[in-house]
Design a protein around this nucleic acid. Structure first.
Lengths: 110, 110
DNA sequence: CAGCATCCAACGAGATACTG
DNA sequence: CAGTATCTCGTTGGATGCTG
């Protein structure tokens, strides 16, 4: 597995790697949620919502649950009044950082 | 511009770089179309459609037109019978390659 | 505060039929 | 061959109101 990573579609097993990435994060809000978590580490629901500017609570909840299921995000509930819930990236989620660097690099060339 | 690229949302002007990338390619088929063009260089409409397996002609046309407008893809029409149209990436489009390498790398960890 | 339930609008995309 | 036109459908997401 030390071979350089190149694009390809022929090799069985690796041919859908890109598709798998896409299934995980190819959603407008999902990208931005992960970016915020990369930048800020641990964030409360409300902070996330304000930071994302425009997202509805429903959508944010849905995307976070999805990311949780996929093991990208972890959810920590504090049984307090008023309730507090904090989100952060799992180790798997943190592996997305290089992808975001590239995403930003390309965006800056536009 | 030699400074290392890091994620950030504070810096005005660069704060939406990721969002701009996403506006450009955050679509299920768009990603896969660009990947095919990266791999195959110059491709005809029909080849692209067969290669993408499942995309309808309508959707393929729409996405290609979109990419053309954004300067990612160039379209070359040969006035022949039967008609031949070839698509390839522009220089700007080719700058997407590192992003796809990362996309694949991450997908392989899943 | 952090949600869930409901309703509704917009968009992406498939199927099908047709054309230069 | 490389589209275009039309219809339909499923999903995404915003708005609003309610709750522990």
């Amino acid at each position: 597995m030390d071979e350089p990573i190149t694009l390809s579609k022929g090799t069985p097993g690796t041919e859908c790697a890109i598709a798998k990435s896409l299934d995980t994060i190819s959603n407008k809000w999902t990208f931005l949620i992960v970016r915020d978590l990369l930048l800020d580490g641990t964030v409360r629901f409300g902070e996330l919502q304000r930071s994302l500017d425009g997202i509805s609570a429903k959508t944010l909840t849905l995307r976070l649950r999805e990311l949780e299921e996929k093991g990208i995000v972890s959810r920590q509930v504090y049984p307090e009044i008023p309730p507090r819930v904090e989100y952060s990236l799992t180790d798997k989620g943190k592996q997305l950082e290089p992808l975001f660097i590239e995403l930003k690099r390309f965006g800056m060339t536009l």
